[in-house]
Simulated assay, not measured.
Amino acid sequence: MQTRRRTITLTTEVTKTASLKPNLTSAFKHTKSRMSTRTLVTKSGIRSTESNVLESQTSALSIENDITIASTSAKKAMRRTRKTVSPSTATIVTTTSTTGTTEVIKEKVAKTSEEQPWTKRPAHVPSYAKDALDHLCKMDPALAPLIAKHPYRIYTDHDTNYFRVLTRTILGQQIHWKAARSIIYKFVSYYFPDKVTVESLDSGDKTFPTPHQVLSTSMDQLRHCGLSERKASYVQDLAKHFVEGKITFTDKTMLQSMLDKDIASQLLCVRGIGPWTVDMFMMDSLERLDVLPTLDLGVRRGMEKHFAGEYKNGLWGTIVEDTEVDGNGVLVKKIKKKAGVKAKGKAKNGEMTCEDMERMAERWRPYRSIASWYMWRNAGPEGVIAAPI
C-alpha cells in the first residue's frame, strides 16, 4: 500500500515537471532574444563611436592641411618680400582677404643701421700729412691712386689716460663691438653708478676707475660686470703694473722721449697685451708715424693686394743680401736673388708672412703707419675689414 502511494506521488511530480518545461523553454527563448537585441544595440553604438572618431580624425587632418598650406604661402610671401628689399629701404607686405578679394599693401620703411661708436670721433688732416704723402708717392708710386681716393685723416681726440685706453682695448679683444660696449658700460657703472650711460661713453665721457680702484676689486665682482675670468685677470695685472710703477709713462710729455721699443717692452710684460695691441696703441693714442702692424689681418690683405705684381714663383719682392761702398764712397747694393726668399714659417700660397711684410714695407719708412692706414682701405670692399684707426 505504501509502495503504491509513493509511486503515485512520483508520477504526479514528473507530470508537474513536464508541464513546466514549455514555460522554461519560452523564458529561455525570451531571455536569449533580449540579449541578442542588446548586443545589436551595443554593436550599433560602437559603430557610431568609430564613425565619430573617423570624422574627428578627418577634421584634424583637414585643419593640419590648412595650416601647412598657410605656412607655405607665408614662406613664399617672405621670399617675395626679401627679393624687393633694397639696401636703404625695407618693403612690408600686408595681405588682407575680404569679400573674396585679396589686397596687397606695400609700404617702404627706411632701414637704420647702428653706427659704430668710433666712427663718430672727430678727425682732421695733420700738419705732417702733405710731406708724408709726397714721400710715399715718390717711394711707392702705386700708392697714388689710393691716396687720391681716400684723403688722409686721423682722429683728434687722443686719450691721454693710458690706463683707460689699454683697459678698454683689453675688454674689447676678440668680441663684437656691441658686446664690448656693453661690458665697458657695466665695468665703469660699477664704480660710478647712475653717472654714466652707454650713450655718454660713446660720446667720449672720460669717467673711468683708477688703477688702485680696479686692483682693490675682487675677481668675483669683475666677473659680475661681464668680464671673463681671463680678462678680469688681465685688467688686474694691468692695474698692478701701473700701481707698482712698472709702466713708467703716465702722460704724453713723458712718452715723447721714449722709443717705440722701450714702450713695447713695458707693455708686453702685461698679461693680455700682445704685439698687435701695442701697435694699435702707438699708432692711435701716441700717433707714432713709423709703425707696421704685421699681425693685423686687414693690413696684410691690403699689402698682398697692393704688391700682387711682385709675387713670383711663390716668393714676395726683392731681397738685398749684401751691400758695399764703391771707390767714390757711394753705397752699392748687390741683389743676389731677384724673386725674394721664403721667410721663416710656412704661409699659404699667396699670403705674406710677417717677414715678407717687413721687407716689402721698407720703402715706406719713416711713414709706415700712414701706409698701413691705406692698406686697411685697400683690403677689400668698404665695411668688410674695418680700420681700427
Rank of each mutant, 00 (worst) to 15 (best):
K231F: 07
T25H: 09
W316E: 02
I385N: 02
I46P: 00
D326W: 02
V235D: 00
G309K: 15
T31M: 06
V165K: 03
N378F: 01
A239N: 00
G45K: 15
E13P: 00
T101H: 11
I273D: 00
T17Q: 12
W376K: 00
E103D: 07
V341S: 10
T99F: 15
C269A: 14
L54V: 04
A74E: 14
I247W: 03
A386D: 10
A387Q: 10
S257E: 06
D284E: 15
R164K: 15
M360R: 02
K195V: 08
L54D: 06
M283T: 03
R34A: 14
E64F: 14
M357G: 01
T253F: 09
G345V: 02
K29V: 09
I335H: 07
K261F: 08
S228H: 04
T207Y: 04
L255F: 03
G345E: 04
L40V: 11
I69H: 09
E324Q: 08
Q2D: 15
V332W: 05
L268W: 05
S233G: 13
C225P: 02
T17E: 10
I370M: 12
L201H: 03
L215N: 05
I370V: 15
T112V: 15
S257I: 05
Y155F: 08
L238V: 04
R181L: 11
W316S: 03
S369R: 00
K334Y: 12
D140M: 09
K312V: 13
S369N: 01
L146A: 07
K178Y: 05
E64M: 15
K261C: 07
G309P: 03
T15N: 12
P211E: 05
K21R: 14
F192A: 06
W276Q: 01
K75T: 13
H224Y: 09
E107V: 09
F192E: 02
Q221M: 11
L40A: 14
T9V: 12
R38E: 08
D134M: 06
M352L: 11
E64I: 13
S228D: 05
P193V: 06
V332T: 12
V325S: 12
G298W: 00
Q213P: 02
A179S: 12
T17M: 13
A18G: 07
H241L: 04
T96I: 11
K149P: 00
A129S: 15
N349D: 08
G274Y: 00
T102H: 12
T294M: 06
G172I: 05
P388M: 08
V384W: 12
M375A: 05
S71H: 12
M254S: 14
S285I: 04
L143E: 03
P22E: 10
T12C: 09
K344D: 13
M258L: 14
K333S: 11
K206P: 13
M78T: 15
D279P: 00
A110D: 12
P145G: 04
R34T: 11
A123T: 15
G245I: 05
